[in-house]
Design a binder for these strands. Structure first.
Lengths: 333, 333
DNA sequence: TTGTAGGCGTTATCAC
DNA sequence: GTGATAACGCCTACAA
């Protein structure tokens, strides 16, 4: 592999000049520049990013640590991030923490060790120190989707409480009596906020949340399935369910289909997060949609901005959700 | 940020000893080792991966360059890769080429510049040189899902031709007369192989493929939608469609639903690639399923093996698909 | 077993 | 504007 010294020799200039030509910041005699470029072409020279990173103490790589690559919610967000990153001349690498705090720690260590320019993360663990280690090492952190209190980093979130409240209120309005909630692990801020919104809506309707109708699952399809099954096995099963994420909604739906229950006749269903196939499923599923692409963009813009101005005040941006009413929660007898 | 020299000073040893303790290959006096470890803890030392990479001319990072993060096909494959990688002490970073040859080139350049230990890719372009540049620079390449002839790299594929043939034969058996095919861009080996399987099945049934019933789309939902619409607008529309990937199947399905056509009464549907919601959609969708997790594992194992033995003969592994018959292609009048 | 020293390929700081 | 030179932090012959 050719180095700048090889190029320098061939172009009859110094390595410093080659570097200057390649980086284009400083002015170089056009004649020399041309010779350098020619030599680069002839030798097929490509800059060694690792050496450059070592010298500059920084990469042009952004790490996006997401809790589940299988979740369409995140994959759409990633597009938003990439669009901003590439405009900023940076590349994005995705890391899949799989809702697993150990894996997450590993990837944080990778981002740190590889001196990535920044990290966008939807935290799977509640280990604040890991993330603060990043930011105190000069690698800015932007949280997206989920917030971890005490982390020095910007955040882009949606109004989970409000979205959940709207969803639940909608079920109340439709006349459902025993509205259950399947939510996620307590350490995820989204899970608790959405549960709170659910409770709020019931209280606003003069009811009380009933603990036998609440389940904490794992934000995955199997968790949603099992939670649904457990709810149906209650003495007094629910006539409606609010599920706080998309994969669990799929699981819950599978469970209902298996048991040949009619939706929304026997049990109504509202999910959080849009799914690409919401309109294809019969009945179509009512969801609380998030502007996922926008969340990605916003997070990426915050990151770009913080890289440019490390000392800005921390920002916390809240986007709005929107209720998409479909067949799974309407036309109740 | 502390360096090994800081640790060395604190532990009263040389930097070389620190390095040895940290890497654990060579033997070090236990007393010294303990002092080193203590110093590491006290200083919160973390090894600078960039410096290490520069010195060793290698990372412990694998790049997985996939053509579409939104496709559940790939996300499941990624799990398979990660499981093998972490067993090999490596970390996986995902790069999304978005079926865009430019983006793909960029990520290949990143992998090269960052001296990644290896690349697993499902090629979106047909630019053989890019990939051969990688492998000739000592960064092994494993192709997965799609093969590019002329690339020096291992490959893990499925028997696309056979899978497509089975799917089409199934439609023939069910009595469909005008079987259409929506396939992907010509540069993708999967698209052409699956089209060939479709043709084979028709010929085996004593029929001829009819070009007015064949569409080349972009492997994305919108492409499937538009291709379906265009097929339905034919003078003699099809009574069955074989769609060669999952996202296009979704698009085609949306189109059929929009036009209020009955599936499989008016038009039967078989898709390639499993989708997580295949059983939830009404009617459920017949698919040609691939062992995606296994493909990921196999690719990762090939990569690990090639990193260990760079001079092994190239391997080409073909896995089998399986037809999952569901409602969208059965009970024809 | 341990330490010394050189170098991985770049970029930034100097003189010129 | 250009060139020499010293880091960046680590690993690994080689010497002791």
């Amino acid at each position: 592999m050719a180095t700048i010294y090889d190029v320098a020799r061939r172009a009859q200039v110094s390595a410093a000049t080659v570097s200057r030509v390649l980086n284009g910041r400083e002015t170089v005699d056009p004649a020399l520049a041309e010779r350098v470029l020619a030599a680069v072409g002839e030798l097929g020279y490509r800059r060694n990013a690792v050496a450059r990173n070592l010298r500059k103490q920084q990469t042009s790589l952004w790490a996006v640590i997401i809790s589940d690559v299988e979740n369409p919610f995140f994959t759409s967000m990633v597009r938003g991030i990439e669009d901003v990153a590439s405009a900023a001349g940076c590349s994005v690498v995705l890391c899949n923490s799989d809702e697993n705090p150990e894996k997450e720690s590993r990837y944080i260590a990778v981002a740190l060790g590889e001196q990535m320019a920044g990290v966008i993360i939807s935290p799977s663990s509640d280990r604040v120190e890991d993330l603060n280690l990043l930011s105190s090492s000069g690698c800015p952190v932007v949280m997206v989707d989920r917030e971890l209190k005490g982390v020095r980093g910007d955040a882009v979130l949606v109004d989970n409480e409000n979205g959940a409240e709207e969803a639940t209120a909608h079920l109340v309005e439709q006349g459902y009596e025993r509205i259950a909630c399947i939510t996620g692990p307590q350490r995820a801020s989204t899970a608790t906020e959405r549960l709170r919104g659910y409770r709020n809506a019931l209280e606003a309707a003069g009811r009380r949340a009933n603990d036998t109708l609440i389940r904490m699952a794992n934000f995955r399809a199997d968790g949603g399935h099992d939670a649904m099954a457990s709810l149906l096995d209650e003495q007094q099963p629910p006539d409606a369910v609010f599920v706080t994420n998309n994969l669990m909604t799929v699981g819950a739906l599978e469970c209902l289909v298996e048991r040949r229950l009619d939706i929304p006749g026997d049990v109504a269903l509202v999910g959080f997060d849009e799914v690409p196939w919401a309109d294809l499923v019969r009945p179509s599923i009512t969801t609380v949609a998030q502007p996922t692409y926008e969340e990605g963009r916003a997070a990426a813009e915050l990151l770009a901005r913080r890289i440019a101005e490390p000392d800005r005040a921390l920002t916390r941006q809240i986007l709005r959700t929107s209720l998409r009413v479909r067949a799974s929660s309407t036309s109740h007898p």
